[in-house]
Structure formats: structure tokens, C-alpha cells
Design a protein around this nucleic acid. Structure first.
Lengths: 164, 164
DNA sequence: CGGAAATGCTTTGACGTCTAAGTATTTATT
DNA sequence: AATAAATACTTAGACGTCAAAGCATTTCCG
């Protein structure tokens, strides 16, 4: 199944041997890339029986948390940091499965609201439970490691202008 | 540009309010997902002028580090943890740009080798330099944070069976 | 030795994401 | 009030990834 050595540590050694720059940055970037890969695999596997993936679940959760159970598509994209076209696509699929419906904004004709349905709320709760059982894919990371990842990445998110 | 609050911290609050499980796991998973998003954006932007993306660069780097400048496609996939079909696709594009060529394996008729060309080596070096300049997208994370991310994610990678 | 199983790669199809362009509506400007 | 600019979403097209099926070659075993 796996390799006998750490492929990222191996890459760092090769990197140094070629005198290529920013070895520590490379390992951090590669680690995060691989972590994401592992997480997506585990999370999508857990959500597949529910007809969801992580993107669709994130939209449902956001709507579930909203006061009215609805949000403008643009606001969803801003929160989840995804492109408007991706939001359109995701909401299309959620709507096809009757987990949300599109409704017009009461005062702004340009805006479309995504409104979560009753079935959508049930599905969101089931998905949250399923994700809880697999610890959102981070099983194997201790509590301390999780906090450190959060803290370290917060630096990156602020530098990237996510908030603050 | 960004929001005024930390969207992940906000999600944690909402999560708790709904009594949804595994809040700390959720924040870790969401942080990693967002970090990956930031990295890919920065890295692909830095590599685009060179006609590369991160996947293609990773293949070139692997070949550059190899003893003979060539590797079986299957071995590339195992190292980079990507699907065989993705390796085929990536090597197709590298070959179209004359950065690698496919050659038959000397003894095993099933196996195809990807061999890096002279131009491929030059391009890899240029890309490594470009990535060094942007610190592989992790600019904003301090040295300590990078080490902590590496260490924390190593736990995850071992748990996922990557190596060891 | 010879057929079954395993291995290595490619092809096809589905899905997700992004960019760029297009349409509709609202806001700003003069 | 009329036009220009900005905003919100959708559509079309390109690319990347994966799963599943297909094809060729090699290895395993009775």
C-alpha cells in the first residue's frame, strides 16, 4: 500500500541536493496539499451515501445556520471562497435533489436566494453526523496537532486577506 | 476584499449552537481546505507564465531527481499519490510541450517510462526558482508555523498509510 | 506448458473548478 | 431623466481528477 519512506522528506533531500530554493516552504506546501487530498478522499467517501460532497454540504450548513434559512448566492460564494460559477453549479445540484430551492430576492431583482428545504435540513443533520463519526477526515491527528494546524493556517489566511 | 470576521471561527460558533459534533475536527479540516485553496491559487499563478501547473511541475521535479531522468508512469503516480489516469493526462501535456518523452521500458513491455528532456530540465529549474520567489505560496506563515504544520500533517499521513 | 490472475497504461465518462463572456437589474453620474 | 458603471448570476469552454472498463503484457501455478 504505502511507501517505505516519507515521500515529502525524500523530496526535501533531493531539493537540497539540487540547490533548489525554499525547502521549508516546499515541504509545508506539499504537506498541506497531501493533507487536503487525504481529507477530501475521506470526507467525500463518508458523504457519498447521502448524495453529497463537501462543497454541497458546506452550502447546506451555511443555509442551516442562517437566520431565514436562505442566502444570496453571492454571499455563499464569499463565505466559502468559491467562484460564482461554482456556486451556481453546486446550487443547481442541490436544487435538483430538492435540498434547496431558488427564490427571488424580495427587493433586489438581480439577486437570487438559495432557500434550504425541510429535506435539506434533515440531510444536513445526517451529513454532520456522518462527518462527526469520521472526525472530518482528520482522524490520526491529535488535539494538539489540530490546534497547531488551525493557528498556523490562520496566519496564512490573514496574509491572504481572507479576513481581519 | 475579505470579510470582517474569521469565517472558520464563525462556523465553529454556529456548529456548537446546533450541537453538531466534532467541532475541533471540523475547524482543522476547513482550515486545511482553505489553505490548500490559497496555495493552489498562488502557485498556479506563479507557474502559469511557464506553461506549467503544480501537478506538471511535480512530475518534472520527480524526473529531474531520478537517477536516469526517467521513471515508469506508475511509479510517478505512487510517489505523487495521484490516479493513473491523471498521470497519463499530465504526461500527455508535458510531452506535447516537449518537456518529457515517452519511452518503452527496456525489459517490461507493459511499462512506459517518462523521460525528461533538456528543455524539461531547464523549465523545471525555472519553475523551482519562480516557486522559491513566492515561497511556494506559504508566504505569511512563519518558520515555526511551517514546521508545526509539517509535523501535524505527518501524523495524518502516517495514519492514512502513506508510508511507515 | 498453458490458462488464469495480476500488472501497467489508456480511454471514456462524470464531476468540480476556474476564466471569460453574456444577460438582467440596480446604482451612480451628469 | 438618460446614460454609464457596477452588481448578480448564468452560460460556455478549458482543464484536472477520479472511477470503471478495456487492452496488452507478464507472472503465477496447476
Amino acid at each position: 500500500m504505502g511507501l517505505e519512506f516519507d515521500p515529502i522528506a525524500e523530496a526535501a533531500i533531493n531539493w537540497r541536493a539540487e540547490n533548489w530554493p525554499a525547502v521549508d516552504a516546499m515541504t509545508a506546501a506539499t504537506s498541506i496539499t497531501r493533507a487536503h487530498q487525504i481529507l477530501v478522499g475521506r470526507i467525500d467517501a463518508a458523504l457519498a451515501p447521502l448524495g453529497l460532497n463537501f462543497s454541497r454540504f458546506e452550502v447546506l450548513a451555511l443555509l442551516e445556520f442562517s437566520r431565514e434559512g436562505s442566502l444570496p448566492l453571492g454571499k455563499i460564494g464569499a463565505r466559502l471562497q468559491v467562484h460564482p460559477a461554482s456556486v451556481t453549479n453546486t446550487v443547481d445540484r442541490l436544487e435538483r435533489d430538492r435540498l434547496v430551492t431558488r427564490t427571488p430576492h424580495p427587493t433586489d431583482g438581480r439577486t437570487t436566494l438559495a432557500l434550504i428545504t425541510g429535506e435539506g435540513r434533515q440531510r444536513a443533520a445526517a451529513a454532520a453526523s456522518a462527518l462527526g463519526e469520521i472526525e472530518f477526515g482528520v482522524a490520526g491527528m491529535g488535539a494538539r496537532a489540530r490546534r497547531r494546524v488551525d493557528d498556523a493556517i490562520r496566519e496564512l489566511r490573514i496574509a491572504a486577506g481572507d479576513f481581519g
